[in-house]
Design a binder for these strands. Structure first.
Lengths: 211, 211
DNA sequence: GTCTATAGTCTGATAGAC
DNA sequence: GTCTATCAGACTATAGAC
């Protein structure tokens, strides 16, 4: 058997350098995600990121051309992972259950140190993302998938008829980013789970005792 | 009848200058409120505020010793006004109705260009407020009043027994600041009112068709 | 290391309250 | 007419993107 790295265009082996480059980009994204979640966009300095990754500040710019681009990459990755989580749900599950599962996934993600979906923590970040084609594409794509779920759930009679799809979609995103989670999270995983379940329940069933 | 402005220490007339000082402080608070709501804390420069009020930047510091103090004054004023709105509700109204009314007041306030209650738009602002004694006092005072309403509503059976007072209180604040309002507001006052009513309804009754 | 943005200070000139 | 608050804006210092 000939070596795979011979002359065929198949399986183009990455050099050590190339691999390291990708690994490092990943590390930068992780550090940024962490700092973005803990300090917020403005308070996160490029120096902080470099320090957390353990590289020189200048090296950051080999991977991402600006702070905005770096933050956008983190948000795009979150959207991608959210879409994957959504795709991974069993198709035979009722739409409303999948919506609940997706909200659960999102809230757990935040408990694990992730950034909320809505960039509502910073006007500057929000504006920058809204001007980012790639981000907008991914957001539209995800919203379309969630929109489909909402339509299905509505057809199943699992959503209120007097609320528009749009209203439900935005509310869903808002609940994904609900600050209640930050205020009530304790670090105790059992207690945190209970909070997540209450948030899901209050989202779909409300705070009142039912109609 | 002797003239009122004779020699008695009663009715100490304010000089024109003193009145202007108070009026100006008010104007500064209004401008800051507006800019805070539209640009956010870090993107709001002191020069912006001075320009909007139409005074010199240096004069801002005659009224407020720092940007943080100015932002805090805006937030304290919001808390005060919220407490007043709460106090103004008829005592004979059921507690749950007063909670709905208060949420309605808050959302309308935001539609009118006000700042949301939770300083979630900026970590720096949040930290600064949390270190501000006056702000914390007002926040505690308001939260206590809302907490009392929640207890009453619960006693009336108007809130779910499986959700703690704390969870309900935080959820209430979160709904007051819900970004859904920003995304759905249209400027058309009839449509905006409908959005507010849907948000109140979805807060207490949920997105689902009821249990 | 460079450069920009901006919080916060200071000053001489000026309008207008008293 | 005197006096003082305010003005315009130059200036310093610092932080942080790049």
């Amino acid at each position: 058997m000939p070596t795979a790295s011979a002359s065929l265009p198949v399986a183009p082996r990455k050099s050590f350098r190339e691999t390291q480059f990708v690994v490092r980009a990943e590390a930068i994204l992780n550090a940024t995600n962490h700092l973005l979640a803990s300090k917020g966009y403005e308070e996160m300095a490029m120096d902080d990121i470099a320090a957390e990754v353990g590289i020189a500040k200048g090296s950051l710019y080999k991977h991402f051309e600006s702070k905005e681009a770096l933050a956008a990459a983190v948000m795009v990755r979150l959207l991608d992972r959210t879409r994957d989580a959504l795709e991974a749900l069993p198709a035979e599950q009722p739409a409303i259950e999948r919506l609940r599962e997706l909200l659960r996934w999102t809230l757990r993600e935040r408990l694990a140190g992730g950034v909320p979906h809505l960039p509502s923590t910073s006007r500057a970040l929000r504006d920058s993302l809204m001007a980012n084609r790639h981000y907008i594409d991914q957001l539209m794509s995800l919203s379309e998938r969630i929109g489909t779920l909402i339509k299905q759930a509505r057809a199943d009679g699992a959503l209120r008829a007097d609320l528009s799809d749009e209203f439900i979609l935005y509310s869903f995103y808002a609940r994904s980013c609900d600050p209640t989670l930050d205020y009530l999270k304790s670090g105790d995983s059992a207690a945190d789970s209970a909070v997540v379940e209450q948030m899901i329940s209050s989202c779909f069933d409300g705070l009142g005792p039912g109609r």
